[in-house]
């Protein structure tokens, strides 16, 4: 598997810093599970965080804190045995699998009309809307531009847009300036994770395509 579309520096730095909202972070972390090259870049970004932490100035005495922590230390328990993971190679990667509560074969799709399906994903943040989408093989989507940011991570199948082919692991990072015409490739349905700015419910290219069909 060759991933061609990677995490931008600004997303990677926000994720490493811990300032990226949960919804965007699901797409970033799931791409990282599939992309060793971006994991190496994350290592560098986290090292920057460590280095900045190390150069923070603080002259306060820690004697009191030390006494308090010293008294709270215990022999740590040996790490509990890990639960065996129920996924499989080529399946839905963590952390996404836990968010949707199953793998490809157990997903509970909700119809959106015209052969498209979705599964909404709940997060603790209020700035994103996260959903798993299934687009029928070979279906084109009308050309449009975005109102906000949209991250689309392909998990199965693929789609083409004006800028290239997006297959498993590829992350499309689209902003308001991008106008494109995505088309699911004909071999198979395209399953992807779509994260968009929350209040802009129909800015997702897929949702915008479907919106008129639903009359909403």
């Amino acid at each position: 598997m060759t991933i061609r579309h990677h995490i931008s520096d600004d997303l990677l730095i926000s994720y490493a810093a811990g300032s990226l909202a949960e919804g965007w972070s699901i797409a970033v972390a799931t791409h990282l599970a599939l992309c060793p090259a971006c994991r190496r870049r994350l290592t560098v970004a986290e090292a920057v965080g460590g280095e900045l932490l190390d150069t923070m100035e603080d002259e306060a005495s820690v004697d009191q804190s030390w006494a308090s922590v010293r008294s709270r230390l215990q022999q740590p328990e040996t790490a509990a045995a890990r639960q065996s993971s129920v996924g499989h190679s080529g399946g839905l990667p963590e952390p996404l699998r836990s968010y949707v509560g199953g793998d490809f074969d157990t997903l509970k799709w909700r119809p959106l009309g015209r052969g498209a399906y979705q599964i909404p994903i709940k997060t603790g943040d209020r700035e994103t809307m996260v959903r798993l989408l299934r687009i029928p093989a070979g279906k084109p989507v009308p050309e449009h531009s975005h109102g906000g940011r949209e991250l689309t991570l392909v998990l199965a199948g693929s789609f083409h847009d004006g800028t290239g082919l997006f297959a498993r692991g590829d992350l499309e990072d689209a902003d308001a300036s991008l106008t494109h015409q995505p088309v699911a490739t004909p071999e198979a349905d395209c399953i992807c994770l779509a994260v968009t700015d929350a209040p802009l419910q129909f800015r997702s290219w897929i949702m915008r395509a479907i919106q008129p069909l639903l009359g909403i």
Binding site: G18, I26, C35, P36, G49, L53, H88, E94, T123, D125
Partner: peptide, 29 residues
């Protein structure tokens, strides 16, 4: 230590989960 502090901070201030990949996951590449 930065990553431990960061994750505790997200938990405490943002009240969000921090999604992370799992190297033991069979789908992990």
């Amino acid at each position: 230590i930065f990553t431990i502090a960061r994750n505790l901070r997200i938990d405490a201030f943002r009240r969000e989960r921090r999604p992370e990949f799992d190297p033991e996951d069979p789908a992990f590449v």
